[in-house]
Structures are given as C-alpha cells and as structure tokens.
C-alpha cells in the first residue's frame, strides 16, 4: 500500500490509495460517516481492473482530515480485533 497526495486544502484532503480497492476504501468511508466532524467522505475507482482509488475527506470543527482518517482506521482496527478475539475464543471451545 502507498499513499499519494493529490490535493490538500485547509479542511479537505484528496489522496490516492495505491494498491488497494473497495475492500479497504468502502470500510473506511463508512467508518468516517460515524465521525461528527467529517462533512464528506467518498472515494472513486475509475477503472474496475486497473483503477487506483482516490479518497476524498472534508472536515469541520478544527479536526484535520488526516486526523479523521487515522481515527477511522483505528476504530475499524479495534472492531476487527474484537471480532478476531471472539472467533479465537469460539474456536477453542
């Protein structure tokens, strides 16, 4: 995975997520919706086979879009971690 900066505003960010697809982007987009300081979050993949996802985030209330992204990634990580532990427990039975 690699991130490329495309455009940076005061409260907005447009990045390319090289090497990823809907699996990660859609997950993060939905997680960003849970954040009240996020005004807009979306992504587009221009070609289904060779397209590189472009991810857009816009925030308010003084929270930077990078911060919102990091928080979203951490929320999802925690959710997955919880599930993984549950699965591990269930498998030991």
């Amino acid at each position: 995975m690699e991130l490329e900066l495309v455009e940076k505003g005061d409260d907005s960010l447009l990045i390319k997520v090289v090497g990823e697809d809907h699996t990660l982007c859609n997950l993060l987009r939905k997680a960003l919706y849970e954040d009240e300081s996020v005004v807009a979050a979306s992504y587009s993949i221009e070609h289904p086979l060779v397209g590189v996802p472009k991810f857009y985030v816009k925030t308010k209330k003084g929270k930077s879009p990078e911060h919102a992204l990091m928080d979203a990634a951490e929320r999802v990580t925690k959710q997955l971690e919880g599930l993984r532990k549950q699965l591990q427990k269930a498998l030991k039975k």
């Binding site: 995975m1 991130l3 990823e20 699996t23 990660l24 990078e66 999802v76 990580t77 997955l80």
Partner: peptide
Amino acid sequence: FKAMATLEDKCKEFGKLVKKL
C-alpha cells in the same frame, strides 16, 4: 481468521501511512 487479520493489517498500515503523510 485470515480475512480479519489481513483487514486489520491493512487498516493499521493505512493509519501509519496517513500519519507519515
């Protein structure tokens, strides 16, 4: 299990890369 572990790694890596950015 593998699916969840890979997703988790991807999210962690993404978080780190954003921080670096």
